[in-house]
Design a protein around this nucleic acid. Structure first.
Length: 455
RNA sequence: UCCUCUGUAGCUCAGCGGUAGAGCGGGUGGCUGUUAACCACUAGGUCGUUGGUUCGAUCCCAACCGGGGGAGCCA
């Protein structure tokens, strides 16, 4: 007999004429005098299916002692439920136990703290919260591919292991086959030069944009920064589109369109899971997402953002001054209080931005943009790239970077250079925004953060 | 890396300078088409680790380890 998903049975419009089969895990059991109720979840959706197990079942004594977490399969008849609370229930003809749980199974029916669940990351997908998070994660990953593929973007697999040790995006993990002693003795390494885990696929992505026009990458990224915050992980996933013949305006437009597309998709395709987050994680979630989906984003030149902050009358812990990076508290004011919606801040001072960003005509800013989301902060960071060979060379020299190491990158400007632009979207930050989950460790299956790489 | 809070039963927590308690969860029994079910009984803890102060430390002090929140950096 073919397996039916709990989802398909719960959504049944009419009772099937033949018996059905489900396979899953017990969420809870309630006993009556002559029968037991089992709630079975198979991960196909948030809800569980109520199974009625009558005492006449041959293995009823065993069934009546099943604990949360036990795995089994049930063959039976789907019928309209006699009780309230669910439309359908499954009256069991046969229950086959795959694996019982002993009494030390750590998950209870009641709520657990996210901190405790992190310590049992191998079991937490079995909870309502994490089941929902990872279903949404999967849908969002698919939606990202769909968004770009529908617009003719080519998916490029940029390398995980890289020799670019000065991409400037953060501290890097060293990749080596050498022992510490061998490294000291100068033994040649596997690749013949120092190599690292990538902190960004952008530079390699640019090379493909300068051939295929519109490309995107979507893969793991590694930063060896010693950050202890709810927004940083050492290993995370990033989406980096790059577009040839595109300026900052087009870059910002794509980022905003993408965020709205993803929010809209989540609301359509993950409605049940989002309703759960709205109820138990963040009561403002659906209101905020609908707002983001339906309203245009604000756009502020950096200079204007600074003026707004200076005129706000707020006393910030860090002073506001043109030429300084916007602090988290400044970004929060702009997006949560001044604009009350996502804000794209653009045209940043050139001295606080990396060498590859395009110099503006004013001589003091670059065509950079950050998309700030309420409650999360920076969710997208991007720029138009400097396509003028001489300007780019000057930037490298000014930042003390060797033109030799970037010769292949400079070649893109030597041979048929084009204006181009792109950005990076932190996938986990997007998920935090879409689910309302406030810690990045709870939207990635097995989080890696400084001091912790369990599982 | 810095600031700050925290570590007592499987979970969430209370407690006190004289070696510990609740609720939930587990077990047993009862009851009911139940649905975070309910009622009764019951088991379960070298109070994060190592030192120190003290007649005596879970409690006070120090260091270390783990966890949370914030800052910086960024996505």
């Amino acid at each position: 007999m073919a397996r039916s998903s709990v989802l398909s049975l719960l959504n049944a419009s009419a009772a099937p004429t033949a018996p059905v089969l489900i396979q899953g895990w017990v969420r809870t059991r309630r006993d009556s005098k002559a029968f037991s109720f089992l709630e079975i979840n198979d991960g196909s959706c948030l809800r569980s299916l109520q199974v009625v197990a009558d005492a006449s079942l041959t293995n009823y004594a065993e069934v009546a002692h099943l604990r949360t977490g036990s795995s089994l399969e049930v063959e039976g008849d789907l019928v309209p439920s006699q009780g309230g609370g669910q439309a359908w229930e499954l009256v069991a003809r046969r229950i086959t136990l795959h694996g019982a749980t002993p009494e030390d199974y750590p998950l209870q029916k009641k709520g657990h703290t996210p901190e405790f669940l992190r310590s049992i990351a191998h079991l937490r997908p079995r909870t309502n919260l994490f089941g929902a998070v990872f279903r949404v994660r999967s849908r969002m990953a698919y939606a990202i591919h769909r968004f770009f593929q529908e617009r003719g973007f080519v998916y490029v697999h940029t390398p995980i292991v890289t020799a670019s040790d000065c991409e400037g995006a953060g501290e890097m993990f060293r990749v080596t086959t050498l022992s510490p002693e061998e490294m000291k003795q100068g033994v040649p390494d596997f690749f013949g030069k120092p190599t690292y885990l990538t902190v960004s696929g952008q530079l390699e992505g640019e090379t493909f944009a300068c051939a295929l026009s519109n490309i995107y990458t979507f893969g793991p990224t590694f930063r060896a920064e010693n950050s202890h915050t709810s927004r940083h992980a050492s290993e995370f996933w990033m989406i980096e589109p790059e577009m040839a013949f595109c300026n900052l305006e087009g870059d910002m437009a794509l980022a905003e369109e993408m965020i709205q597309y993803l929010v809209s998709t989540a609301m359509e395709e993950c409605a049940e899971d989002l309703a759960f987050f709205n109820k138990f994680v963040d009561k403002e979630l659906l209101t905020r997402l609908a707002f983001v989906r339906d309203r245009p984003f604000a756009r502020l030149p950096y200079t204007e953002a600074v003026e707004i902050l200076l005129a706000s009358g707020r006393s910030f812990e860090y002073p506001v001054a043109w030429g300084q990076n916007l602090q988290a508290e400044h970004e929060r004011y702009l997006t949560e209080e001044h604009c009350r919606c996502p804000v794209t801040v653009f045209d940043y001072p050139k001295d606080i931005k990396p060498f590859y960003m395009r110099a503006n005509e004013d001589g003091r800013t670059v065509a950079a943009m950050d998309l700030l989301a309420p409650g999360i902060g920076e969710i997208v960071g991007g720029s138009q790239r400097e396509e003028r060979l001489d300007v780019l060379r000057g930037n490298l020299a000014r930042q003390g970077l060797s033109g030799e190491a970037y010769s292949w990158y400079l070649d893109l400007r030597r041979y048929g250079t084009v204006p181009h632009a792109g950005f990076g979207l932190g996938f986990e930050r997007l998920l935090m925004f879409v689910t309302g989950v406030s810690n990045i460790r709870d939207v990635i299956p097995f989080p890696r953060v400084p001091g912790s790489a369990e599982f």
